[in-house]
Computed example of a mutant assay.
Amino acid sequence: MTVIHMVLFKFRADVSDSHKEEFVTELQKLKHLPCVMNSRLVVGGPSITDPIQRSQGFQYVLLSYHKDRQAFAEYQASDEHHRVTSKYLWPFKEDVIRFDFEVDGEDDGAILPIQSLVDI
């Protein structure tokens, strides 16, 4: 079963836009990890939710696809993932929401990354 990994990010108010842009750039590089299924990893933001209050202050989202739980575990444990989160996220975050779920092969094509989120 395909694992879909979704994370919403909210940065502290004192975090610069340039830092957020660098974070997004570094996150996007994770799509090249072999444990990311067919390089299906997108990062979107900042939020365009209207009214903005509905996004509850979350500014960015990551959506990635993994062949199975083992591939997802490899992604989470990778040096690259650890480098990005420890250097660009954890010291600067206000809040993070993570939601992971599985879909069978028939459904994984129904949940496609939104093309407009590919390039910020």
Score class of each variant (00 low, 15 high):
His5Leu: 03
Ser116Ile: 03
Glu80Pro: 01
Arg40Tyr: 07
Ala73Thr: 12
Lys31Gln: 12
Val42Trp: 02
Ser116Cys: 07
Gly45Leu: 05
Ile114Trp: 00
Asp108Cys: 09
Arg98Lys: 09
Phe11Glu: 02
Val96Cys: 04
Pro34Gly: 06
Glu102Asp: 13
Arg40Ser: 09
Asp17Ala: 14
Glu106His: 13
Gln59Ser: 12
Arg69Leu: 09
Val43Tyr: 03
His5Met: 04
Val61Leu: 10
Gly109Pro: 04
Leu33Cys: 08
Val103Ser: 10
Asp100Cys: 08
Val24Ile: 14
Thr49Ile: 05
His32Arg: 04
Val36Ala: 08
Arg69Pro: 00
Ser16Cys: 12
Thr25Glu: 15
Leu89Arg: 10
Val84Gln: 08
Leu27Ser: 03
Lys93Ile: 00
Phe99Tyr: 15
Leu33Gly: 05
Lys67Gly: 06
Asp50Thr: 15
Leu62Tyr: 00
Trp90Ser: 10
Ser39Phe: 00
Val36Ile: 15
Leu117Met: 13
Phe11Thr: 02
Lys31Leu: 03
Pro51Leu: 06
Phe58Ala: 02
Asp104Gly: 14
Asp68Met: 05
Ser39Trp: 00
Ser78Met: 12
Tyr88Cys: 14
Ala77Thr: 04
Ser39Met: 07
Asp108Glu: 15
Leu27Phe: 11
Gln115Glu: 08
Met1Asp: 12
Asp95Tyr: 01
Asp119Ser: 07
Ile120Tyr: 00
Asp100Lys: 10
Leu62Ser: 03
Asp17Phe: 07
Ser18Asp: 15
Asn38Leu: 06
Asp107Cys: 15
Leu117His: 08
Leu89Pro: 06
Phe11Gly: 03
Asp50His: 13
Gln53Trp: 02
Asp107Leu: 15
Lys10His: 04
Leu89Asp: 09
Phe92Tyr: 15
Leu27Asn: 00
Ile97Met: 11
Val61Lys: 02
Leu33Ser: 11
Arg98Asp: 01
Glu26Cys: 12
Tyr75Ile: 05
Leu33Thr: 07
Phe101Asp: 12
Tyr60Pro: 01
Leu8Asp: 06
Thr85Phe: 14
Pro113Thr: 02
Leu63Pro: 00
Val15Gly: 07
Gly109His: 14
Ser116Gln: 13
Val84Tyr: 12
Glu94Leu: 03
Ser116Tyr: 02
Met37Leu: 15
Leu89Asn: 12
Gln56Arg: 11
Ile97Asp: 01
Leu112Phe: 12
Ile114Thr: 05
Glu21Val: 09
Gln53Ala: 10
Phe23Tyr: 13
Gly109Trp: 11
Ile4Cys: 03
Gly105Asp: 15
Ser18His: 14
Phe99Lys: 08
Phe72Leu: 09
Phe23Gln: 06
